[in-house]
Simulated assay, not measured.
Amino acid sequence: MSYAIVGFGRIGQALAHAFARKNIDVTVASRRPPEALEPQARAIGPMVVAKSLREALKADTIILGVPFGEHREVAKALPSWEGKTIIDATNAFPVPEELDGLPSSAFVAKAFTGAKLVKGFNHLGAATLATDPVVAGGHRVVFLSGDDEDATARVAALAKQLGFAPVKLGKLDEGGALVHARGRIWGPLIFQDLFKKEP
């Protein structure tokens, strides 16, 4: 399984730290050329490699770490996303009117034709996400929701590998609504920093 993070701002770098801690290879890319990302990628760890967006999108699993409004530009980079799993770590705030009443991730999913999209890693602030998730005798929780059970299971396995405790919330229109901002109000589970104790 190959992984890429698209977007190398605070969230993208926080997630890159999570991969580096566990010595898992990950490609990072953004609108900037890879040379511009290389110093920061190298500083995070040797497993983090900056590449062009085109190269990064060859990965099986792609984490969206871009601002919400930029997801459509990323989606245009491939004619079809068949066979790809997209992890949507974006937050739409304030919620644009154009979402047609959909949770933001269901709206994002429409842009990535053929992909299996899982909402995840979006409810923690970047500073928290960047730190070791093994804390207080347990693991920091990440909430996941998606319409494809196999894809959600794969993302849950990745979350576990990264040291997090995945909690599945159901489908995008169910659990996704719990981490979806409404108007100027954050979803009920946004910014909830929870821990799951070891059994």
Score class of each variant (00 low, 15 high):
L124D: 04
T113G: 00
L117W: 04
R140S: 06
K110I: 06
H139F: 08
F112W: 12
K116M: 11
H139M: 04
F107E: 13
K116G: 01
T131I: 04
R140C: 11
T131D: 12
V134A: 07
L129I: 14
T131H: 11
V108A: 06
V141I: 14
F143Q: 03
V141F: 01
A127D: 10
G114K: 14
A115D: 11
G125I: 11
A109L: 09
T113L: 10
K116P: 02
V141S: 00
R140E: 09
S104F: 00
A126L: 02
A127L: 05
D148G: 10
D132P: 02
G101V: 14
D150W: 11
K119F: 09
N122G: 06
S105F: 04
F121L: 08
T113A: 07
E149M: 07
A111R: 05
A130Q: 04
L102H: 03
K119A: 01
S104V: 03
F112G: 07
V141M: 01
H139P: 00
G120M: 02
S105K: 02
A106E: 14
D148F: 06
K116W: 09
G138C: 05
K110N: 06
G120F: 03
K119T: 10
A151I: 13
A111C: 08
F143C: 03
N122D: 02
G137T: 12
L129Y: 06
V134Y: 01
L102Y: 04
L129V: 11
D147P: 12
G114R: 10
R140K: 13
D148K: 09
A127V: 03
L129H: 09
V141N: 00
A115H: 12
D132N: 13
K110Q: 13
T113W: 08
A151R: 05
A136M: 13
G137C: 10
N122A: 02
H139G: 00
G146Y: 05
K110H: 07
F143T: 05
F112S: 02
L124A: 03
F112Q: 02
A136G: 14
V118M: 01
V141D: 02
L124R: 04
L124N: 07
K116R: 15
P133R: 02
K119P: 01
G114T: 11
G146N: 07
A126C: 02
A115T: 13
F107A: 15
F143K: 00
K119S: 02
